[in-house]
Design a protein around this nucleic acid. Structure first.
Lengths: 327, 327
DNA sequence: ATATAAACGACAAAATGGGTCGCTTAAACC
DNA sequence: GGTTTAAGCGACCCATTTTGTCGTTTATAT
């Protein structure tokens, strides 16, 4: 039991912890033993587990870099299968530096034997995830900047950041921010925060932060801040306040797909004729809805509400005009 | 050490393992002890860990249902943050029954204290993932059918399935299949397999499989089967053989976004005038490309290659015609 | 009904664990 | 640069625990 507690107290590679710290930590949990015993335990555990310590005087103990994840209960094949799917899914949806924190588990999932005795078939041979969007390349994030940002966010401390605004020509500025939250949209990670002493929240793309340094001062969250409200307002998601009663005319395989994965639970579908099917569904009025409707091309026609139909009509006419121009 | 091995040998709830099995398993790993010792260990461990056994004679041991994931090294805050992001991301991308296999880890991530002493701030307050597509509802999958399918796939055994084809009117048919792989596309899970003794691979939507039963016979994978080739061909992904040298004219915020998350590493962007920017990039000729181009609406015009421009021109004209019709 | 195998209690010998102490060594501080 | 402080480590020994053995009980299978 004590050894179990010690194992869990030892952190992964870059971070380190020394024996006296573990000793007091154990005492805090009601496990009263001599420091000597803790030292003995650490040495004993190091013979079986990939633990390392540095040569400084209070020896800093850590799990060897690249040490695998040991879990109880151990990962079963179905969990491993799911981890493998998620790994493929996430590949281009989060920046490498963030996703890398999960690699111990992804590696563990890879290592789970597919079947007891059979061939050493690789998971990759059996599993594929087809990306639903065009695979864009996430902007790289400086790992140390990311670490500082995430720490400041979680410990609720102010951070001094050097930010390179997207508006061209402007050079990077340095100021302190109060981190509030993290928002991921379209493969980009944004830090939601207030700047200096202003009360209004802003968002900064983390990959455009060139340098970051955690400050001593606590971060102050503006009163009555509502993250969801902020997102809908500032990220240009919500276009209308009320949900739309969308009526759509669709054709082809799209009807089949939509029958299988409905847009919402109240979705109803009624055949119009041999070619077309009418879909009625209540959906929030968002930018994603527009993107989706556009992406369907000439297989979907908005019938109602009127304003949305108008909008789509104008858009398609605008597109035709653009294509009519000589290049 | 022996107890550690025993803990890892005990599976999660529905599955069970008995003491003699563990005993022989330990012997296999060079740990030679009496069966009695194993029994004693199990009882001892059950006082500290949430282990349960049933009342049948060879006692079946398992981790109590809902037992948390215990890991060494324990999950640090950055890993927990990433797990929370991924959980939000995956929410509607995989069916519940599949994703639920990861819930022990998602729960563990939730449980990681955000900061040492500070407030018990919930992760949810700080993290948000904005879905990039319209959030459709994944078709529910019968968990026991899913378990059988996944098992058959991993153990490479034939499966007798009752499949409800999407073509209306046809009733469900039952036949045996040789599972080859799993493909996830647009929130739907497909089983790639060959049917009966035919050599050509097909794909079945897992949520349309009403019943499944694992058979004794080994599954036979067709010679020279190439999963990637199969996907490109059968899922209608690849439209042209060669990659396209896409030339695109874009405007507005899109130019900024595309500069940050390029479509491919060789992407070049050159301003045309105050409004437009020209993007050149080599991309595979896929259905996703079309969807993406369409989703951009009148903010993007394809300039080359010619055939694609033609295609887009015709599509937009067709859409205008559709909207011009009286409802 | 009988045979088989697993679980369990009891006991004793063996092994190991852990506190104490003193020595050594490396930081830290004046 | 010397001194202080604290951590690591080897050694010793007693108490506790561990584990093999064996006999009994109980449930499952034949």
């Amino acid at each position: 039991m004590r050894q179990w507690a010690i194992l869990r107290a030892v952190p992964r590679h870059p971070r380190r912890v020394d024996a006296p710290t573990i000793h007091s930590l154990l005492a805090h949990r009601g496990i009263e033993v001599t420091l000597r015993t803790v030292q003995r335990d650490l040495n004993a555990l190091a013979t079986t587990f990939p633990l390392d310590f540095d040569q400084s005087k209070p020896q800093g103990w850590c799990w060897r870099r690249g040490a695998g994840q040991l879990e109880v209960p151990s990962m079963d094949v179905h969990a491993a299968l799911t981890f493998n799917l998620v790994e493929q899914y996430m590949q281009n949806l989060l920046p490498r530096s963030t996703l890398s924190h999960m690699s111990p588990w992804f590696d563990a999932a890879q290592g789970v034997a597919v079947s007891q005795a059979s061939t050493i078939t690789k998971w990759r041979d059996k599993l594929r995830v087809i990306p639903h969007t065009l695979n864009k390349i996430p902007a790289p994030i400086n790992p140390s900047v990311q670490a500082t940002i995430y720490n400041g966010l979680l410990e609720e401390r102010q951070i001094r950041v050097t930010y390179r605004a997207i508006t061209t020509g402007k050079e990077a500025k340095t100021y302190s921010v109060h981190p509030i939250g993290l928002v991921v949209m379209e493969q980009v990670v944004y830090l939601v925060c207030t700047v200096k002493d202003y009360q209004d929240a802003r968002f900064l793309a983390v990959h455009r932060i060139d340098a970051a340094q955690q400050l001593e001062q606590d971060a102050i969250k503006p009163a009555n801040f509502d993250m969801d409200e902020f997102i809908l307002r500032e990220f240009g998601i919500r276009l209308g306040e009320a949900p739309l009663n969308l009526v759509l005319r669709i054709r082809g395989v799209l009807a089949k797909y939509l029958a299988e994965t409905p847009v919402a639970i109240d979705q109803t579908m009624t055949p119009v004729d041999a070619e077309w099917t009418r879909v009625e569904v209540k959906v929030p009025d968002t930018i994603q809805l527009r993107s989706w409707l556009r992406s369907l091309g000439p297989d979907a026609v908005v019938e109602a509400p009127g304003p949305l139909r108008q909008e789509m009509t104008h858009e398609s006419q605008a597109l035709v005009n653009l294509y009519a121009e000589q290049t």
